[in-house]
Amino acid sequence: MAEALYFMPDISGFSDFVNETEIEHSIHIIAELLELLLDNNTLNLQLVEIEGDALFMFSTKIPSYEELMQQTETMLEEFHRHTKEYDTKRICTCGSCKTTIDLDLKFLVHYGDLTMIKVKNIIKPYGREVIQIHRLLKNQVPVQEYVLFTENIYILYQNNMIESWTKKTEIYDLQNLNYFYKILDNIKLKVEEESQKEAQKNEDFTIPDAIINRTFNANIEKIHRYLSELKYRHIWDKEVMRVEFDENEVNRVGTEHNCVLKLGTLKFETISRPSKDSLIYGEKTESIIFLKKFYYLVNLHALDLNATEISLNLYLEYTFLGSFMKKSILKRITKMWQNKLESLHQVTKSELFP
């Protein structure tokens, strides 16, 4: 009978994540993270199933202990790089987006016989080995990030294991089940240190060419959502026929989308800047005629629950020809944005929300 290594990366904190926060964004975020793990599958493990917050994988080619541990470290490092970058580039203020940085990753590894079952055209591992690794998903390991070896795989690699592993015994189906685990908290700390050393890269915002100040009779979170959720853009921006964007991705710094107008298409990229007491959303484009670059930042400051102070900053960098028409171009763009803000105000002060 063939033997296999069974491997399960499992995102810790996923249950709290989807139960307590916005479902739509959490689905996008978890999908991104699971795809990231698959992209970093250096051992070419075969994917059996996606099980909510976990990947169930196996291989009949048994790796060395060093290769296996490198696989866990690679996945974990890329996982935390992604969540850290996601946090620094985050635009959305919903619970799912704000708590992505708190997610952790654990690994369960087992070794045993490989029995396959076929149902219609679906063939996958089946039997007691599969049951055993799944039972250990609900273990009593007291930390969030670790790699867990069943006794079978511990015996397979014990001659190569020089690190400190903790043995634990739990009762499953009235029988003792031994397993061993190793804490992996050093990876997250490493990524955090790398992130702190890197200078934060922000758009070099100079003095704006125009500032439009308004007060909206609407909740700040509602206004920010209409601004940053691309699927709502056409509701308040009447010049936009539709917005082309990746619906499986949460909008954040660096996200690109196309605004399809009656007379063409403009390509935009999401931007922002740090702020402790305001919500800020912006975009930039190099697609406007006579301008090398145009970008805007909307600064939102809550006055009370249903009143928000709006400050729109417009930045224009002209081409050579555009420099001869500065006044007329700025006047036209300022008027256009005054109309957009008025439409946005009418939409956001309504009680209705899509």
Rank of each mutant, 00 (worst) to 15 (best):
C92A: 14
T285S: 15
Q70A: 11
L266Q: 11
D209H: 10
E170T: 15
N159L: 02
F17N: 12
V191H: 11
L184F: 01
N313E: 15
L5D: 10
W236R: 01
Q158R: 12
T215I: 13
K84Q: 10
I117D: 10
L156M: 08
L103A: 05
D39F: 00
K182I: 03
L105Q: 03
K292H: 14
E269C: 07
I123C: 14
E249D: 11
Q346D: 14
K167M: 14
F180P: 14
E151K: 08
N160H: 09
E221Y: 09
S323A: 05
I212P: 05
F216P: 07
D102V: 05
I23V: 09
K124M: 06
M161S: 12
I212E: 12
V347F: 01
D246K: 10
H234C: 12
N159D: 12
H25T: 12
P208G: 12
Y146G: 04
L305R: 08
Q200W: 08
Q158M: 07
K106Q: 01
N202C: 12
S228V: 05
Y179E: 04
L114H: 03
I187Y: 02
S343I: 06
M336F: 15
I310T: 04
V119R: 09
I91Q: 13
K340E: 04
E309W: 05
Y172S: 15
F320Q: 10
L189G: 06
V298T: 11
T42F: 06
Y111T: 00
T215F: 04
H134D: 13
I117E: 07
T21E: 10
H82C: 09
H257E: 09
E221T: 09
T72Y: 00
L103P: 04
K106T: 02
E269R: 11
N306C: 02
W236N: 09
N306G: 00
C94M: 08
H301Q: 15
G112I: 03
K262L: 12
A302E: 13
E317D: 12
E309S: 10
R90L: 08
N217D: 14
S343L: 01
G52L: 11
K106H: 01
G282Q: 09
Y296F: 13
N40A: 05
L37H: 05
E342P: 00
E77A: 10
Q175W: 00
N40G: 04
S287C: 02
L266M: 11
S195N: 14
V18Y: 14
L5W: 06
E20V: 01
D209I: 03
G52Q: 11
I29H: 09
S287V: 00
N152R: 12
T100Y: 01
I288Y: 00
E24M: 12
E49F: 05
T285H: 03
K292S: 07
L184R: 02
T88M: 14
D209S: 11
E32L: 04
N159T: 07
K262R: 07
L38T: 01
Q140V: 02
K326P: 02
N217S: 15
I91P: 10
